[in-house]
Structures are given as C-alpha cells and as structure tokens.
Design a protein around this nucleic acid. Sequence first.
DNA 1: AGAAAAAATTACCCTATGGTAAAAAAACTA
DNA 2: TAGTTTTTTTACCATAGGGTAATTTTTTCT
Lengths: 191, 191
Amino acid sequence: MEDLINKIKTSLHLSSEAEEFLYSISKEKTLPKGEVLIRQGQIVKKTFFVTSGCLRSYCVDKNGKEHTLLFAIKDWWISDYIAIHTDELASLTIECLTESKVIEFNAKELDGIYARFPEFESYQRHNLERHVVSLYKRILNQLQLSAVERYDLFLNQYPDIEQYTRNFHIASYLGITQQSLSRIRVEKVKK
Amino acid sequence: MEDLINKIKTSLHLSSEAEEFLYSISKEKTLPKGEVLIRQGQIVKKTFFVTSGCLRSYCVDKNGKEHTLLFAIKDWWISDYIAIHTDELASLTIECLTESKVIEFNAKELDGIYARFPEFESYQRHNLERHVVSLYKRILNQLQLSAVERYDLFLNQYPDIEQYTRNFHIASYLGITQQSLSRIRVEKVKK
DNA sequence: AGAAAAAATTACCCTATGGTAAAAAAACTA
DNA sequence: TAGTTTTTTTACCATAGGGTAATTTTTTCT
C-alpha cells in the first residue's frame, strides 16, 4: 500500500483523510503465478494496483487464439476497463505471469474517491490523458511498423517486462504468432 | 458554438460564466476541403471541435505511406494530442476531408478551463475513460480480426463516416492497402 | 461540359507472416 | 534429480495481403 500512496504523492498532495479512505477500501494480496483475477465472460467488480510481479490482460478469440492487451508491472493498474465502463461481462482474462503482489479495490468503491476527494479528478484526468497518448502510439505503431520493428520497440520501451513474460505472451501482444517471433529472434542473434 | 455548448449540456450543468469563457477563447471557422490544420513536424497549439464535415488525423511513415489514426465528424474533437501532451512537434497531419465547420481553441487556453471551472474535470475524466475503452477495443480488433472483418466492423460502427471518406482513407485506418480494400469490396458485392 | 487530376480497380507476381507438426529446450513438480 | 509439462525452435508448405503498374472510373477544376 505504501507503493500506491507514494506513487500518488509524486503528483498529488494526499490528505490524510484521502489516504485513510484508500486504506479502508483496499486489500493487499499476494498471488501465485498462474492465478486468474478476472475471467473472460464473468462479472468484473475489481481493479488492481500492482506492487510486484507481472500480470497481463488478454482475450481469447473465436479460434481459441490469445491476444494480449496489456502487461502490468510495479506501479501499474490493471483490470477489464472495457467491462467496467460498458457494464458488460469481462471480455478479458487477467492472470499473474509470476507471483505478484497487488492491492485490490472494488472498482465502484474506488470510483467514490472522486466525489469525496475532488482533487483526484485532476490527477486521474492527467493519467488518462497520458494513457490515451500511449494507446494512440501503439495503434500507429501497429499500423506502420513491421513485426521486427514492433518487437525491437517493445524491448526498448518495456525492458522490464521481458524478464517476466514468455515469448508467446509478447507475440500475442505484438500481433504475431510465437513461431514468427521465434524466427525474428533467431535473425537478431545472427546479426 | 451552439453545438459544443449543447453537447456539454447533455452531461454537465454549464454555468453561464463557463459558457462565457468558452465563447471568449473560441473561434468558429469554415474550412474548405483539403485544408490542413496541423502539419506533421510543426508546432501544435490548437485543438478543434467539429460541428460539420469530416476531418482525419494521419501520419506519414518513412516509406511515405499514410496511416490514419482518427476520423472526426460532428461533435468530435480532433488535434494531435500526442504532440500536445508530450510537448513535441506534430507527428500527425490533420486535414479536412470535406468542407467542414470547426470551433478552434488554443489547447493551453482550453486547458485553463479546469482550473477555473473544476466541474469540467469530472466531465473530461468520463470522456477520457470512454475514449480509452474505445481505443482498447480498436487494439483488440486489430489483433484478432482479419481485414474483411475489420472493414465490416468499421462500416457498422461508423456508418456516418463512410460518406465523407475515400476508400484509401479507410484502408489506411484499417491497416491495409487500398488495393486490398478494393478486393474486399469486390468480394462483398459478389455475395 | 470538357480537360485534368485523383481515386479505384484489376492483374500479376512477391513477401511477410500463419498453420501444422515434430523435435529440442526449458521450466516446473514430485 | 527424474519425470512431466510447457515453451521454443525448426521445417515445410499455405495464404493474406503488399508492390507495381496499367486501366478504368470518379471527382475536381476551369
């Protein structure tokens, strides 16, 4: 919980009441590798702040193939925000790729923070603005870069994530098969 | 300007002071087809609310190919938010696909609205949350759908946009060439 | 309307990436 | 540590979509 408080404090003065509120609605958990926090098709109520380890959210398509939307490591939030904001069942599954520590919140409860402590509105707006920009960039990269270029960029952009993931997780994030990623990796070694 | 005010009023009580402020920093413009509002490589200061017509934002890659990030029609905002939020030069070009009417704002000035009228924080947070969800969906679609499926989805999702765009605009949004889109269209007619 | 420009279609061949399956390597587990 | 499971690699062939260029159609301009 320290981690979350500290993260918030880097950009927002946190009143002791707000801090107290966060404590009161949070639950710290240590999860084993492989644990599933949200399962595609089920109701989504929770959202998670990661303090150690690595999680990913992915969907399984009609052919049974997995597609990774997001990896989350220390200081990232993860949940199925599609489901939460559209009030639908989960379209994503969220699993631990390693043993992980997370702070769990009920998403609705956490949302109450804006009414109680309006200073969070601005904080979150800025977070979302940055997030939108990163998603724009990801879309543009997907449109204009080759698989090799996307892989290189991924390694540069998220050097900390590779250590936690299997190659097929990365492939499914980049939009290629694990066989293609394997070939790309072989080519890289040759050079 | 009515359009913007009305749009805001659907989800926010707008004080007359706030309305006055919006008027004071806005400029209504009618733009001819082909007009470029922001050019890749230049400084970005403005943001636009569209009241009629259609605009698109796109980038040109190192091979000279265009990739469309966004189309904007009535009631959408458009700018190069990547540049604005990272304080870089434009990575996007924004052009009118048809004669269009927009309300122009200086992005920094518009940002001042949150300090003056904090009720906009919550309004914008909700907008951004929805936008993030739509971007997540676009990424997942790009990962799991074929070109044909993406085209069908585009037509269903944005039936109003097709009338304003050329096919090569849509192709560059879907991540395929205009030749591929042409083949897809031919196949559709056959069925 | 007629000329010019832009866009769409078509054809031909090419390439990046996918699919399947088997083998090898690595990572768990008891 | 041996056995089991999972992941990665490799090979071979398949295919969706790309590149170029010519042709036709549509749009724009005067």
